[in-house]
Simulated scan of single mutants.
Amino acid sequence: MPPTAPTPRHTLHTLYSEHHSWLQGWLRKKLSCSQQAADLAQDTFLRLLISGRLPEPERSRAYLTQIAKGLLVDQYRRRQLEQAYLEALARVPECHAPSPETRALVIETLVCIDAHLGRLPQIVRETFLLSQFDGLKYSEIAERLGIATATVRKYMLKASLACYAALEESPASGTPAR
């Protein structure tokens, strides 16, 4: 009787057994924190489990490293957003400060908006940021970017729709991500 191909669960188990310690050590060197390294190593394997895609055995470490690097970038971006939000909150009188639960929901929503905006072309994001954070008028944005004012309107619509989609998916809306 010919041997049967390993089941995906068995392959994931093997991958975990053979590479988890190595990955955690690699992350520990990057993060200088064993707890964060342990969490990110687990998150890496969770991503594999959820995706259902497993690498060829000879590409296991490269594949795991690629996923872990993506998680590191996500963590870094999240921390930047969280830090900016907390700095803004520090300027709010304590009596008007949101509850810890509200803070957590706002941070999750900001991360979701950032992810949606990150999927847009660079010029669309730049248009949106110039409008929303620099307070430029559409005509000023058009002049700065060398595009038509009508194009600025079109880009703002795309960015606004991305933000709306993010709000629909955010934890605060109660609607799960698709």
Rank of each mutant, 00 (worst) to 15 (best):
R103T: 06
A142N: 04
P121Q: 13
A142S: 01
L145N: 04
A115W: 14
F128D: 13
E101W: 01
H116R: 13
G135L: 00
A97Q: 15
I123C: 10
D134G: 12
I113F: 07
R119D: 08
P93T: 06
L145R: 09
L110G: 02
C95E: 14
F133T: 14
V124Q: 12
K137A: 03
L129E: 13
P121H: 12
I113Y: 01
G135R: 08
C95L: 03
R125A: 03
Y138K: 15
T102E: 15
D114S: 04
V111S: 14
Q132R: 15
P121A: 05
L110N: 01
A115I: 09
L129S: 09
E101Y: 06
D114F: 00
R144T: 08
A142I: 03
P100A: 02
L110S: 03
E94P: 08
I107L: 11
L136K: 15
E94R: 13
L117Q: 05
L130S: 04
H96W: 01
R144G: 00
R103E: 09
A142C: 02
L129A: 08
S99R: 05
R125E: 06
Y138D: 09
S139T: 06
L120F: 02
H116P: 05
T109W: 11
V106R: 02
E126G: 08
R125Q: 03
D134T: 10
T102Y: 04
L129M: 03
L130T: 03
E101M: 01
I123H: 13
A97S: 11
L145E: 01
H96F: 04
L136Y: 08
L120Y: 06
D134C: 15
E143M: 06
I141F: 07
T102N: 15
V111M: 12
R125W: 04
Q132S: 10
L110H: 05
G118M: 08
L136M: 07
P100V: 07
L120N: 11
E140T: 00
V124F: 01
P100N: 00
S139N: 12
S99T: 06
R144M: 03
A97D: 13
R119I: 01
V106P: 11
P121Y: 07
D114W: 05
T102G: 14
S139E: 14
I123S: 11
E108D: 13
C112R: 12
L105W: 12
T109D: 10
E108G: 08
P121G: 09
T109E: 14
P98S: 05
